[in-house]
Protein backbone atom coordinates (compact mmCIF):
# COMPACT_ATOMS: atom_id res chain seq x y z
CA UNK A 1 0.00 0.00 0.00
CA UNK A 2 1.25 3.43 -0.82
CA UNK A 3 -0.02 6.47 1.00
CA UNK A 4 0.57 9.81 -0.60
CA UNK A 5 0.37 13.18 1.08
CA UNK A 6 -1.76 16.06 -0.27
CA UNK A 7 -0.10 18.74 -2.41
CA UNK A 8 -0.61 21.59 0.08
CA UNK A 9 1.26 19.50 2.61
CA UNK A 10 4.28 19.16 0.33
CA UNK A 11 4.17 22.87 -0.41
CA UNK A 12 4.07 23.83 3.26
CA UNK A 13 6.76 21.24 3.96
CA UNK A 14 9.17 22.98 1.61
CA UNK A 15 11.61 24.84 3.87
CA UNK A 16 11.40 28.33 2.27
CA UNK A 17 7.61 28.25 2.29
CA UNK A 18 7.51 27.10 5.86
CA UNK A 19 10.08 29.68 6.90
CA UNK A 20 7.97 32.53 5.52
CA UNK A 21 4.77 31.03 6.93
CA UNK A 22 6.33 30.72 10.40
CA UNK A 23 7.75 34.25 10.28
CA UNK A 24 4.31 35.63 9.48
CA UNK A 25 2.23 33.57 11.89
CA UNK A 26 4.60 33.14 14.87
CA UNK A 27 4.41 36.62 16.48
CA UNK A 28 0.60 36.71 16.23
CA UNK A 29 0.27 33.33 17.89
CA UNK A 30 2.60 34.39 20.68
CA UNK A 31 0.67 37.57 21.55
CA UNK A 32 -2.72 35.87 21.35
CA UNK A 33 -1.51 33.04 23.60
CA UNK A 34 -0.06 35.43 26.20
CA UNK A 35 -3.29 37.43 26.25
CA UNK A 36 -5.33 34.24 26.71
CA UNK A 37 -3.01 33.18 29.54
CA UNK A 38 -3.72 36.46 31.34
CA UNK A 39 -7.46 36.02 30.85
CA UNK A 40 -7.26 32.42 32.08
CA UNK A 41 -5.19 33.39 35.15
CA UNK A 42 -7.60 36.24 35.94
CA UNK A 43 -10.59 33.89 35.66
CA UNK A 44 -8.86 31.17 37.66
CA UNK A 45 -7.54 33.37 40.48
CA UNK A 46 -10.33 35.95 40.82
CA UNK A 47 -13.56 34.73 39.27
CA UNK A 48 -13.69 31.00 39.96
CA UNK A 49 -15.22 30.18 43.37
CA UNK A 50 -13.13 28.27 45.92
CA UNK A 51 -13.45 24.48 45.75
CA UNK A 52 -15.69 22.95 48.40
CA UNK A 53 -12.96 20.52 49.47
CA UNK A 54 -9.68 22.18 48.53
CA UNK A 55 -10.56 25.84 49.12
CA UNK A 56 -8.27 28.16 47.17
CA UNK A 57 -5.64 25.43 46.85
CA UNK A 58 -7.45 24.03 43.82
CA UNK A 59 -6.45 27.12 41.79
CA UNK A 60 -3.19 25.32 40.98
CA UNK A 61 -5.30 23.37 38.49
CA UNK A 62 -5.15 26.30 36.04
CA UNK A 63 -1.40 26.00 35.62
CA UNK A 64 -0.97 22.29 36.37
CA UNK A 65 -3.51 20.60 34.10
CA UNK A 66 -2.62 22.63 30.96
CA UNK A 67 1.11 21.93 31.41
CA UNK A 68 0.48 18.22 32.00
CA UNK A 69 -1.73 18.09 28.91
CA UNK A 70 0.87 19.98 26.88
CA UNK A 71 3.67 17.66 28.04
CA UNK A 72 1.95 14.67 26.39
CA UNK A 73 0.51 16.62 23.45
CA UNK A 74 3.99 17.88 22.51
CA UNK A 75 5.32 14.33 22.68
CA UNK A 76 2.58 13.21 20.31
CA UNK A 77 3.47 16.05 17.92
CA UNK A 78 7.16 15.17 18.17
CA UNK A 79 6.57 11.46 17.53
CA UNK A 80 4.18 12.15 14.63
CA UNK A 81 6.69 14.51 13.02
CA UNK A 82 9.45 11.95 13.56
CA UNK A 83 7.29 9.24 11.91
CA UNK A 84 6.52 11.49 8.92
CA UNK A 85 10.23 12.22 8.64
CA UNK A 86 11.11 8.52 8.70
CA UNK A 87 8.40 7.34 6.31
CA UNK A 88 8.23 10.12 3.72
CA UNK A 89 11.77 11.41 4.26
CA UNK A 90 10.57 14.97 4.72
CA UNK A 91 13.43 16.96 6.21
CA UNK A 92 11.14 19.62 7.65
CA UNK A 93 9.37 16.96 9.71
CA UNK A 94 12.63 16.06 11.44
CA UNK A 95 13.24 19.75 12.09
CA UNK A 96 9.79 19.99 13.72
CA UNK A 97 10.50 16.96 15.94
CA UNK A 98 13.88 18.38 17.00
CA UNK A 99 12.33 21.78 17.74
CA UNK A 100 9.48 20.33 19.80
CA UNK A 101 11.65 18.34 22.25
CA UNK A 102 13.05 21.13 24.48
CA UNK A 103 9.63 22.78 24.77
CA UNK A 104 8.11 19.43 25.73
CA UNK A 105 10.78 18.87 28.36
CA UNK A 106 10.09 22.30 29.90
CA UNK A 107 6.36 21.69 30.19
CA UNK A 108 6.88 18.18 31.59
CA UNK A 109 9.13 19.73 34.22
CA UNK A 110 6.45 22.36 34.92
CA UNK A 111 3.74 19.69 35.22
CA UNK A 112 5.87 17.72 37.71
CA UNK A 113 6.76 20.71 39.90
CA UNK A 114 3.27 22.30 39.93
CA UNK A 115 1.93 18.81 40.68
CA UNK A 116 4.34 18.43 43.60
CA UNK A 117 3.28 21.82 44.98
CA UNK A 118 -0.34 20.74 44.71
CA UNK A 119 0.36 17.31 46.17
CA UNK A 120 1.95 18.60 49.36
CA UNK A 121 -1.15 20.31 50.82
CA UNK A 122 -3.68 17.81 49.40
CA UNK A 123 -1.92 14.45 49.69
CA UNK A 124 0.60 15.40 52.36
CA UNK A 125 3.58 14.67 50.12
CA UNK A 126 5.48 16.34 47.27
CA UNK A 127 6.25 13.03 45.63
CA UNK A 128 5.00 9.46 45.60
CA UNK A 129 6.08 6.61 43.31
CA UNK A 130 2.57 6.57 41.95
CA UNK A 131 1.76 5.29 38.41
CA UNK A 132 0.71 8.73 37.08
CA UNK A 133 3.63 10.57 38.65
CA UNK A 134 6.18 7.94 37.69
CA UNK A 135 5.06 7.71 34.06
CA UNK A 136 5.19 11.53 33.80
CA UNK A 137 8.76 11.44 35.15
CA UNK A 138 9.61 8.80 32.52
CA UNK A 139 8.25 11.24 29.92
CA UNK A 140 10.77 13.83 31.11
CA UNK A 141 13.57 11.26 30.75
CA UNK A 142 12.33 10.37 27.26
CA UNK A 143 12.67 14.02 26.22
CA UNK A 144 16.17 14.16 27.75
CA UNK A 145 17.12 10.90 26.03
CA UNK A 146 15.80 12.18 22.70
CA UNK A 147 17.77 15.42 22.95
CA UNK A 148 21.02 13.80 24.06
CA UNK A 149 20.74 11.14 21.36
CA UNK A 150 20.39 13.92 18.74
CA UNK A 151 23.45 15.74 19.99
CA UNK A 152 25.49 12.51 20.01
CA UNK A 153 25.62 12.46 16.19
CA UNK A 154 27.62 14.79 13.99
CA UNK A 155 25.72 13.68 10.94
CA UNK A 156 22.35 15.41 10.79
CA UNK A 157 20.42 12.72 8.90
CA UNK A 158 21.70 9.93 11.14
CA UNK A 159 20.73 11.98 14.21
CA UNK A 160 17.29 12.49 12.64
CA UNK A 161 16.71 8.79 12.01
CA UNK A 162 18.08 7.46 15.32
CA UNK A 163 16.20 10.00 17.43
CA UNK A 164 13.00 9.41 15.43
CA UNK A 165 13.13 5.71 16.33
CA UNK A 166 13.58 6.58 20.01
CA UNK A 167 10.67 9.05 19.83
CA UNK A 168 8.44 6.34 18.32
CA UNK A 169 9.40 3.72 20.91
CA UNK A 170 8.57 6.22 23.66
CA UNK A 171 5.02 6.58 22.37
CA UNK A 172 4.04 3.53 24.48
CA UNK A 173 4.40 5.79 27.50
CA UNK A 174 1.57 8.11 26.38
CA UNK A 175 -1.37 5.73 26.95
CA UNK A 176 0.29 4.63 30.19
CA UNK A 177 0.27 8.23 31.44
CA UNK A 178 -3.30 8.77 30.26
CA UNK A 179 -4.86 5.59 31.66
CA UNK A 180 -2.61 5.24 34.74
CA UNK A 181 -5.27 6.75 37.00
CA UNK A 182 -7.84 4.26 35.71
CA UNK A 183 -5.75 1.07 35.37
CA UNK A 184 -4.05 1.21 38.74
CA UNK A 185 -5.11 2.55 42.09
CA UNK A 186 -3.48 5.94 42.10
CA UNK A 187 -3.39 8.80 44.56
CA UNK A 188 -3.81 11.07 41.56
CA UNK A 189 -7.41 12.04 40.87
CA UNK A 190 -9.22 10.77 37.80
CA UNK A 191 -10.20 12.80 34.74
CA UNK A 192 -12.24 15.94 35.41
CA UNK A 193 -13.16 17.53 32.09
CA UNK A 194 -12.78 14.69 29.58
CA UNK A 195 -16.01 13.13 30.82
CA UNK A 196 -17.87 15.37 28.40
CA UNK A 197 -21.35 14.08 29.19
CA UNK A 198 -21.00 14.99 32.85
CA UNK A 199 -17.89 17.01 33.68
CA UNK A 200 -17.33 17.05 37.43
CA UNK A 201 -16.70 20.79 37.52
CA UNK A 202 -18.94 23.87 37.35
CA UNK A 203 -18.91 26.33 34.44
CA UNK A 204 -17.28 29.21 36.32
CA UNK A 205 -14.46 26.88 37.32
CA UNK A 206 -14.27 25.25 33.90
CA UNK A 207 -13.98 28.16 31.47
CA UNK A 208 -10.66 29.53 32.82
CA UNK A 209 -9.23 26.02 32.53
CA UNK A 210 -10.34 25.68 28.90
CA UNK A 211 -8.95 29.16 28.11
CA UNK A 212 -5.65 28.18 29.72
CA UNK A 213 -5.48 24.93 27.72
CA UNK A 214 -6.05 26.88 24.51
CA UNK A 215 -3.48 29.50 25.59
CA UNK A 216 -0.83 26.87 26.31
CA UNK A 217 -1.51 25.13 22.99
CA UNK A 218 -1.11 28.37 21.02
CA UNK A 219 1.97 29.25 23.06
CA UNK A 220 3.55 25.93 22.11
CA UNK A 221 2.69 26.57 18.46
CA UNK A 222 4.32 30.01 18.59
CA UNK A 223 7.52 28.77 20.25
CA UNK A 224 7.62 25.75 17.94
CA UNK A 225 7.40 27.94 14.81
CA UNK A 226 10.28 30.11 16.03
CA UNK A 227 12.40 27.08 16.88
CA UNK A 228 11.66 25.39 13.56
CA UNK A 229 12.79 28.58 11.77
CA UNK A 230 16.16 28.29 13.51
CA UNK A 231 16.37 24.56 12.73
CA UNK A 232 15.47 25.12 9.08
CA UNK A 233 17.97 27.96 8.58
CA UNK A 234 20.71 25.89 10.19
CA UNK A 235 19.92 22.81 8.10
CA UNK A 236 19.43 24.69 4.84
CA UNK A 237 22.37 27.06 5.16
CA UNK A 238 23.78 25.93 1.80
CA UNK A 239 20.42 26.08 0.03
CA UNK A 240 19.82 28.71 -2.60
CA UNK A 241 16.91 30.42 -0.81
CA UNK A 242 19.01 31.03 2.30
CA UNK A 243 21.88 32.31 0.18
CA UNK A 244 19.45 34.65 -1.59
CA UNK A 245 18.23 36.00 1.75
CA UNK A 246 21.87 36.51 2.75
CA UNK A 247 22.67 38.27 -0.52
CA UNK A 248 19.89 40.78 0.20
CA UNK A 249 20.60 44.47 0.91
CA UNK A 250 21.15 43.86 4.63
CA UNK A 251 23.32 40.81 4.06
CA UNK A 252 21.25 39.24 6.79
CA UNK A 253 18.48 36.70 7.11
CA UNK A 254 15.23 38.11 8.38
Amino acid sequence: MRITLPTWFHKLASPPHFYRFARLLGPWLLWVSLLLMLIGAWGGLFLAPPDYQQGDGFRIIYVHVPSAYLSTMIYAVMATAAAIGLIWRIKLAHAVAAAAAPVGAWFTFLALVTGALWGKPMWGTYWEWDPRLTSELILLFLYFGYMSLRSAFDDQSRADRASAVLALVGVVNLPIIHYSVIWWSSIHQGPTISKLDAPSITTDMLWPLLVMILAYTLFFAAVLLQRVRAEVLDRERHARWVQELLAGPEGEVR
Binding site: P50, G55, D56, G57, R59, I60, L117, W118, K120, P121
Partner: peptide, 8 residues
Protein backbone atom coordinates in the same frame (compact mmCIF):
# COMPACT_ATOMS: atom_id res chain seq x y z
CA UNK B 1 -5.23 32.18 49.11
CA UNK B 2 -7.19 30.73 52.03
CA UNK B 3 -3.98 29.51 53.63
CA UNK B 4 -2.61 27.96 50.44
CA UNK B 5 -0.47 30.97 49.42
CA UNK B 6 2.82 29.10 49.82
CA UNK B 7 1.65 26.50 47.28
CA UNK B 8 -0.49 28.53 44.86
Amino acid sequence: MGGYAQYV
